[in-house]
Design a protein around this nucleic acid. Structure first.
Length: 245
RNA sequence: UCUAUGUCU
């Protein structure tokens, strides 16, 4: 079943839900019994293919076959609904998991937070963040990155940088997503000196930029109309031995 | 072997 599970989860990229479904059927025909991971993987493929209804059907089939949903099942399903903007349904699932004795974790809350952010519902997003703290669930770097994105999209740069400072206070470390998000936000707003500030801070922290980050830097400076800086980043990229794409 | 955050993707 490991083999089939791996192939099915491979279908997430590319939204290959029909392929995943046929591997799933083939697996059963070959006499293998789907396990928890098989169902979770298939459910996730449907979610990533933006087919929350079918993801829900996988949950039902899973239960009909005697497997109780795990926290992974719920988080994946919540992500499927949130991705489609179905936040009320996502919240209902979070409540349902609690009723069934599964405590929402940092994945659950970060998914909901980001879902509300994408829907433009900042108040609700902040409520999720508070609920998370009240529940004693510690935010991790992904949570902070989602908050940075939220404040960045709203032009609340002071708040955004406050979250950036919180990262260290909470014993987390800024990662590639953090740096790319900050650079992109300042780039989108034409704030070239802030882009430079983030760039300096990034180097100071010892972060080694890879292709994504160089691309983000070049894009950020381009949006600021800073052609020379963009070219300088392109040169740094080549000097660092990173291949452009 | 399965779940959350970013860069135009």
């Amino acid at each position: 079943a490991y083999t089939y599970n791996t192939i099915i989860s491979c279908c997430r990229r590319g939204s290959l839900y029909e392929e995943a479904k046929s591997i799933f059927e083939e697996m059963k025909l070959a006499g293998y019994v789907p396990d928890k991971v098989t169902y979770n993987a298939l459910l996730d493929v449907y979610g990533k293919s933006r087919r929350p209804k079918e993801a829900m059907e996988v949950l039902m089939e899973m239960e009909a076959n005697g497997f109780s949903p795990s926290i992974v099942t719920y988080n994946s399903l919540i992500s499927a609904y949130a991705r489609d903007g179905l936040l009320e349904e996502a919240i209902r699932l979070k409540d349902q998991m609690l009723e069934r004795g599964i405590k929402p974790d940092v994945f659950t809350y970060t998914t909901l937070l980001s879902g509300y952010e994408k829907a433009g519902k900042d108040e609700s997003a902040m409520r999720v963040f508070e609920e998370m703290r009240d529940a004693g669930c510690k935010p991790n770097i992904c949570t902070f990155n989602a908050l940075i994105k939220m404040y960045g999209n709203r032009g609340k740069f002071t708040e955004m940088m406050k979250i950036f400072d919180d990262i260290k206070e909470c014993g987390c470390t800024a990662d590639v997503v953090t740096w790319n998000t900050l650079l992109a936000v300042f780039g989108q707003n034409g704030m070239d000196s802030e882009v430079y500030g983030v760039f300096k801070e990034m180097r100071r922290s010892g972060f080694v930029a890879e292709r994504d980050t160089f691309n983000t830097l070049i894009s950020a400076y381009s949006r600021c109309g800073s052609f020379d800086q963009a070219m300088a980043m392109y040169k740094s990229m080549l000097d660092a031995g990173v291949a452009p794409d």
